[in-house]
């Protein structure tokens, strides 16, 4: 258990808490990378996912393609892309966007797919346009699953940005990649603990958001159906 004590000592050492290479600065970098990755991935995945969900077309293709993306090993992808794109932030960013797209995409189309057909039919029956059907019925009702997709993507992105530190980029992976070759296991473990805490905190925040954004009607419906099944 000595490693754990060393890691905790490392985490509270004032030397590691200040400056551009300190834990707070690296955490901010890590969050920045994560946010940037998710924004780009969402901009790509959500329109496609909702289009698939709304039209009901292309789902098979989306499942196959995003499944293929999921199988790409990110470390290898970062290396290959860095050889093509140079050592900047672009290579790991691309690799991480590719990692984040499948869960976001799946959350979007599965979310729409899970909406009761009769609800959508009713919306059309009362004269809603296709856009209104999407914006006022499908989108809000898809949120529980779509945010599940976002949570899954966020966890993966937070955890996996660490591998980008094989390149000269910042973030919390620096502590692991810098500590390992000089056998500074306190630094490696300390960095890992911060990543885990960060992932848990962000997931808790998203879980809270998930509760807040679920439309009241959906909650009522679920409660009702629970009572019925109970």
């Amino acid at each position: 258990m000595n490693n754990w004590l060393d890691a905790l000592a490392w985490l509270v050492d004032p030397e590691n808490l200040t400056g551009p290479g300190g834990v707070p600065a690296r955490t901010v970098e890590h969050l920045g990378y994560t946010l940037l990755t998710l924004v780009i991935a969402a901009a790509i995945a959500l329109p496609i996912g909702y289009l698939i969900g709304h039209t009901g077309r292309g789902r098979g293709l989306a499942v196959a393609v995003s499944g293929g993306f999921r199988a790409l090993p990110t470390l290898g992808l970062v290396t290959v892309l860095a050889l093509l794109m140079g050592l900047g932030i672009l290579a790991p960013l691309t690799a991480l966007v590719i990692l984040a797209i499948p869960p976001l995409l799946a959350g979007a189309y599965a979310g729409v797919g899970a909406v009761e057909r009769s609800t959508i039919d009713s919306a059309r029956a009362v004269g809603m346009t296709e856009w209104q059907v999407f914006a006022q019925v499908e989108l809000p009702l898809s949120l529980p699953l779509a945010i599940s997709g976002l949570r899954s993507a966020t966890l993966q992105v937070i955890a996996t940005w660490t591998v980008a530190a094989i390149l000269p980029v910042g973030g919390l992976g620096r502590f692991m990649l810098d500590g390992l070759p000089v056998r500074n296991y306190a630094e490696v473990l300390g960095g890992a603990i911060v990543v885990i805490l960060l992932a848990l905190v962000i997931d808790a925040v998203l879980a809270g958001t998930q509760r807040i954004v679920i439309p009241r009607g959906v909650k009522a419906l679920r409660l009702a159906s629970k009572r019925m099944h109970a």
Binding site: T79, A82, L83, G86, L87, A165, I166, L167, P168, R174, L177, D178, P181
Partner: peptide, 20 residues
């Protein structure tokens, strides 16, 4: 230092060639 964890492999070589 510009840390590149490939032990003088292709990433390091490329960084020198392209002036990084």
């Amino acid at each position: 230092l510009v840390p590149i964890s490939d032990s003088g492999g292709p990433l390091t070589v490329n960084a020198l060639v392209d002036g990084t």
